[in-house]
Amino acid sequence: MPGLHPHKLTTSEEDYLKALYLLTEWEDEPVGTGALADQLGLSPASATSMVQKLAVKGLVDHVPRGAISLSDIGRREALRMVRRHRILETFLRDELGYDWDEVHDEAEALEHTVTDRFIDALHARLGHPEVDPHGDSIPSAAGVLATRDAQRLDRFHGAQAIVCRVSDEDPEFLRRAKKLGIVPGAMIELPHQLNYIEASLVWVCAP
C-alpha cells in the first residue's frame, strides 16, 4: 500500500494513532476500544467508530470486539506525532522555562499546528536530545525509536534502581515526584520509597 501523506490525516486521527501507540509502548497487553476510549476521554462508541475509519484507511488492524494494533503505516504516523510531542515538551522546558508538569498539555495543543520541517529544525537547535523531560525516548525523523531496558517500579526487584521515565499524564503526580527526587537519572532506594509514590507510574533500570 503506498505511503499515506500525513496531511490527509485529521487531528482526531492523529490523536487516536498516538494514543494507541502510547498504550502499547511500555505494556504488552492487548488494547481494545474501551482502553483507547479511556485514554482519550471519549465514549467507547466514538472510539469504535474512529477505529473502523482507521482500519478502512489501513492505519490499524482490528476485528470486531478484538484487539487493535497499528499497521506499519499507522505506526509510522503515530511515531511522527510522538516525535513532535516530545520535542515540543523538551523545547518548552529547556527554552521557555516550563516545568515538567506543565509541558504535556501545551505540547498537545502545538503538535498539530507545526510542520515536520519545524520540528526537525527545533530538534537540531536543542542539540538533538534523545529523551524528553519525562525520560521517554524521542523517535528519529525516520521513525526509529531507541529501545530501553526498563521495568515498571512496582514490578522491579532490587534494593536500588535508577529512574528511567515517569508517566506524564498526571501533573499532580509529577509535582509530587519531583519533590521526592523521583526524576529521570535519579538513584532511588527500595522498598521504602515505594510508600510515597504510585509505583505503576515510574519505570526504572538496574543500577
Rank of each mutant, 00 (worst) to 15 (best):
G127H: 10
P129V: 08
S140R: 01
G143R: 04
P139Y: 09
G158D: 02
T115Y: 13
G127M: 08
Q160G: 01
G97N: 14
I162G: 07
D136P: 00
E95N: 08
S137V: 05
V163T: 01
R93E: 15
L92F: 12
A142H: 08
T147S: 13
A146R: 12
H157W: 01
D105A: 13
D136Y: 11
V163M: 01
H104T: 12
V163Q: 02
D132I: 02
D154E: 15
D99Q: 13
A107G: 09
Q160L: 05
E108G: 05
L110V: 05
H123S: 10
E108D: 15
S137H: 06
A109G: 13
T90N: 07
A107S: 11
A142K: 10
Q151G: 01
L145T: 14
H112V: 09
A150Y: 04
P133T: 03
R155A: 11
E106A: 12
H104I: 05
L153E: 05
E106F: 08
H157Y: 04
A142G: 14
D116V: 04
I162M: 03
G143K: 07
S137C: 12
V131M: 11
G135V: 00
L145V: 10
H123M: 04
G158C: 03
E106N: 03
R125I: 07
I138N: 10
G135P: 00
T115D: 15
S137Q: 11
I119G: 10
D101S: 09
D120E: 13
H128Q: 06
L145K: 15
T113K: 15
D101K: 05
V144L: 00
F118D: 09
H128N: 14
R93N: 14
D154M: 01
A159T: 00
G158N: 04
H134L: 13
V144E: 14
L126V: 07
A146V: 06
R155V: 01
L110H: 08
G135D: 04
A141H: 07
D154A: 01
G97A: 14
G97I: 10
R152F: 11
H123Y: 09
F118S: 07
F118C: 06
G127R: 03
T113V: 13
R155G: 09
A107L: 05
V103Y: 09
E111A: 07
V131D: 09
D154P: 01
R152K: 12
P129W: 00
A141V: 04
F156Y: 11
S137F: 11
S137L: 08
P133D: 08
T113L: 15
E130N: 00
L122M: 08
D120Y: 10
F91M: 09
E130Y: 07
R155F: 12
E130G: 00
I138W: 06
D120K: 13
D99T: 11
H123F: 03
V114R: 15
Y98A: 04
L145W: 05
V103K: 06
V144S: 11
E108T: 15
L96P: 02
E108H: 13
H104G: 08
